[in-house]
């Protein structure tokens, strides 16, 4: 199968990270066992689904389980391994930096290290970290640094802890993941963070979860305190974000997304290896997209739009 897709929502679990998790006793992610991951397995997956390249990031639980000093060292090692991955397969992988969020100064320093010295393609951020929303002012210095660099930032949900959700007999990743992303978009929106950091190129996982569908609710709320200008800002900010299709190719989800975002801001994501469960046959990874998009639109979503976020990959693939 011809490989043309560029996958902007995919994860890696490098040996240094798996080992660090094992040391702190973390063997399950959002209630599920940690899947296996190797570069050859990732490329076999890509070949099965016509994917030319993946931009990988660390998923759950990020650096949440590590002591602050340990987190700094783990992030440093993971980012070095990401650089090695991209060096080894420059046309098959891109990579996003992992930040040691428990220490704001160290996180800001790691942004410089990962982007300037390692040349990684952007930064991965969790929607919340240790129970605190990424929209919390405490993370302001990190966003300011990312804005200064015009960085590509991918926001992925984190599983809310047992104190931050009802004790339901449902997998945490099913709904609570989505709520985490929705809360992050809302917090960043209502705190003015999107407006304050206009040069960050944001991508939100899973089509922004419920944020696009609830945009009217958010706009009505914003308007109550800030008038029509605040309502307009909600629309403007949501239209400025990028959204990936991982786990979200269904027509109702896409319909909500298209109400708030231009086509050019929709990018393809597989969520591999976690999204494995949804891929039962080889070939088209998200056939449902064809219910919402023409063939030309699909091609743009599944390839071209990614290059605005990851220009290095565009150059490596001769698409720039």
């Amino acid at each position: 199968m011809r490989r043309f897709r560029v996958d902007l929502h995919a994860h890696h679990i490098p040996p240094v990270y798996r080992e660090a998790l094992r040391r702190v006793g973390a063997t399950r992610i959002a209630g599920a066992p940690l899947p296996s991951w190797t570069p050859p397995a990732a490329m076999r997956f890509m070949d099965r689904y016509g994917i030319q390249a993946q931009v990988v990031s660390i998923s759950e639980p990020g650096v949440e389980r590590f002591a602050p000093d340990d987190a700094i060292a783990v992030a440093r090692r993971v980012n070095a391994s990401s650089r090695d991955l991209v060096d080894a397969y420059p046309t098959r992988f891109g990579a996003l930096a992992l930040l040691p969020l428990a220490d704001i100064d160290a996180a800001v320093a790691e942004i410089a290290h990962a982007l300037d010295e390692l040349g990684l393609d952007g930064v991965g951020l969790p929607a919340s970290f240790q129970g605190r929303s990424i929209g919390d002012p405490a993370f302001g210095p990190i966003l300011a640094e990312l804005d200064r660099r015009g960085a590509y930032v991918f926001v992925h949900p984190a599983a809310p802890g047992p104190d931050d959700r009802p004790g339901l007999a449902l997998p945490v990743f099913l709904n609570e993941f989505m709520f985490d992303t929705t809360r992050a978009v809302t917090a960043l929106l209502l705190s003015g963070a999107f407006a304050r950091h206009p040069d960050i190129r944001w991508q939100f996982a899973h089509a922004g979860a419920a944020a696009p569908a609830l945009s009217e609710r958010l706009a009505a709320y914003a308007e109550r305190s800030g008038g029509p200008a605040a309502r307009a800002e909600v629309a403007r900010a949501l239209a400025g974000l990028h959204y990936d299709t991982a786990g979200a190719p269904a027509p109702p989800t896409v319909a909500a997304l298209r109400e708030v975002a231009p086509l050019q801001h929709i990018v393809f994501g597989s969520d591999w290896p976690f999204g494995q469960a949804l891929l039962l046959t080889a070939g088209d990874p998200q056939p449902e997209l064809s219910q919402s998009f023409t063939a030309a639109e699909r091609r743009a979503i599944e390839r071209d739009h990614a290059f605005r976020l990851v220009p290095r990959l565009a150059r490596a693939l001769g698409a720039a």
């Binding site: 919390d136 709904n175 929705t182 609710r217």
Partner: peptide, 30 residues
């Protein structure tokens, strides 16, 4: 509204804004 101990303190938002729509999802999923 879910009990305060079943939702995150951050971000601080009125519970009806997001937690209401989330609650319906939880009940329907279950």
């Amino acid at each position: 509204p879910p009990p305060a101990h079943d939702r995150p303190e951050s971000p601080a938002l009125p519970e009806v804004l997001l937690e209401f729509p989330f609650e319906i999802v939880r009940a329907v999923a279950l």
